[in-house]
Design a protein around this nucleic acid. Structure first.
Length: 473
RNA sequence: GGCGACGUAGCCAAGUGGUAAGGCAGGGGUCUGCAAAACCCCUAUACCCCGGUUCGAAUCCGGGCGUCGCCUCCA
């Protein structure tokens, strides 16, 4: 049984897919008007883990994540740099895709864009006008918020209290301050599409209602996004969809916590975002990916480079063990010791942690427990069994969490490293420890870790997934 | 001002009624040419403060203090 926190009800609810065995998901993607930052990566990685876990549990998952590739910010930015809005958006969408790929995020099944769904949006707005949930004013179309008696339920606020003391000017023609634009009329020099209400572009919220309907149907299981989208975006989206469909569009609303810096939210408009390209130059992608998974997805995550470095040290323990077990054969038996029990029961406990509202922090705790048990087994004379069980466990965990690097190192580098290790062991046998230490220093500086043990010298490249090797010491 | 969330060891962080996961850092020991890794042991009578409910609360309720988020740019 998988349980998920639902923002609408404010409680943990069991996941009951509308179609048994299938889970449909829609999440709000980015507005591509600037570089991708860490805050964009968090929900992407979180949903990647959710998808992988659901698949592991046997569900067929359909995942849709949109791009809002036309809006005021894009138009403004495009005007500033003298580039067409479509080119600006395309550039940043490409960058986003590349960053997500580096983070090991599976591509969505559909990645619809607003500009490719204008027809669906226009007909959606038309239906809302016909049913009286929307009205035209000065070339704009507004959604009549008070037509939905449940408006405010999702974000847990009361409509009457919401607009008191609001100091923004109400746009001319709006019946009510809380009403929001479904269609915005365009200035002559702005990019626009023809519509029954004149040339213009869609408002911010309507695209998600129209595109989720087109790609997932009239109702779907999970809707995701950052908690900062709860209001107004998701509140508005829900109101539109309820008005259009006559029923609830979403089974469970799932919101991920924000990343903060100095306790303040990281966001493009505050200019305190850490760009992903910058982070990629300083940390391996699996470290960044799993750093985002090191706390529960609903908790705020304070960005601190020292924490990432700490996390990298923790991961290196797992990686070192993986280097030791990755070629192990399947185990034949397991002794009744405590460490063996941990290794054999790992899958059950690991998946149970994720069943519980996708608790990745707890899932990692189970991985570290398992790592300790594996090392105990190896140290206590059951290396074959321990390695075999551990290989299976790490592959399972990695398939969902994605903490192991998978970049291969050129063969020639490996061959050179192997010869250096060989010469070092010759020096050690000759008790020429000065030369041996020099050779080890060269290997270390090249990214190779050298470990002398009773079974010989193990060596591998940390953080890059080199094949490494073993030589008799 | 309104609404909401959070406050757990030196640091990060799970746990939400039954007696404190995990990570980092630190200390002691074993092993080792040295180192690293690994193994063994130690490091919160305790979960912001004060009341209350309960046989029992970090977990529920009330009050207080602090931090953050949303209140139409936002993942």
């Amino acid at each position: 049984m998988i349980e998920v926190y639902d923002s609408l009800s404010g409680t943990i609810v069991p996941l009951k897919p509308r179609i048994p065995g299938r889970v449909s998901i829609y999440t709000c993607g980015v507005t591509p008007y600037d570089h991708s930052h860490l805050g964009h990566a968090r929900p992407a990685v979180v949903w990647d883990v959710i998808r992988r876990h659901l698949r592991r549990r046997g569900y067929i998952v359909t995942y849709v994540q949109n791009f809002t590739d036309i809006d005021d910010k894009i138009i403004k930015r495009a005007g500033e740099i003298g580039q067409p809005a479509s080119e600006l958006a395309a550039r940043y969408m490409t960058e986003y895709h590349a960053a997500m790929e580096q983070l090991g995020v599976l591509a969505p099944d559909f990645a619809p864009r607003v500009t490719e769904n204008i027809d669906a949006i226009i007909s959606y707005i038309g239906a809302l006008l016909e049913s009286g949930h929307a009205y035209v004013a000065e070339g704009n179309v507004y959604f009549r918020v008070r037509s939905d008696p449940q408006y405010g339920q999702l974000s847990h606020r009361k409509l009457d209290e919401m607009w008191e003391g609001v100091r923004i000017e109400v746009e001319p023609g709006k019946e009510y301050a809380g009403d929001f634009a479904l269609w915005k009329s365009a200035d002559a020099d702005e990019v626009s599409w023809p519509s029954p209400w004149g040339a213009g572009r869609p408002g911010w919220h309507i695209e998600c209602s129209a595109m989720s309907l087109r790609y997932l149907g009239a109702a779907f299981d999970l809707h995701g996004g950052g908690i900062d989208l709860l209001f107004p975006h998701h509140e508005n989206e829900r109101a539109q969809s309820r008005a259009y469909l006559g029923h609830e569009p979403v089974s469970i609303w799932v919101h991920s916590g924000l990343i903060t810096r100095g306790s303040v939210k990281m966001s493009k408009s505050l200019g305190n975002g850490i760009s992903l390209s910058d982070l990629f130059s300083r940390f391996p992608a699996p470290v960044l990916r799993t750093y985002l998974l090191s706390v529960h997805y609903r908790s705020p995550l304070e960005f601190e480079e020292d924490r990432i470095a700490e996390w990298a040290r923790a991961l290196s323990r797992i990686e070192r063990l993986w280097e030791d077990v990755k070629t192990a054969l399947p185990p034949r038996d397991a002794p009744g010791d405590e460490w063996a029990r941990v290794l054999t029961e790992f899958e059950e406990h690991f998946l149970a942690a994720l069943d519980s509202d996708f608790n990745t922090a707890q899932a990692f705790a189970r991985v570290f427990d398992m790592v300790a048990a594996a090392n105990q087994g190896i140290a206590r004379g059951h290396a074959l069994t321990a390695r075999g069980l551990t290989r299976r466990n790490l592959r399972l965990a990695n398939e969902i969490l994605g903490f192991l690097p998978d970049v291969t190192v050129p063969v020639e580098d490996e061959a050179l490293a192997a010869s250096l290790v060989k010469r070092r062991n010759e020096a050690r046998q000759a008790r020429d420890f000065v030369l041996a230490d020099q050779l080890r220093a060269i290997l270390t500086e090249s990214g190779y870790e050298v470990l002398d043990g009773p079974e010989g010298t193990r060596w591998h490249r940390l953080g890059h997934g080199g094949r490494g090797g073993m030589q008799d010491g």
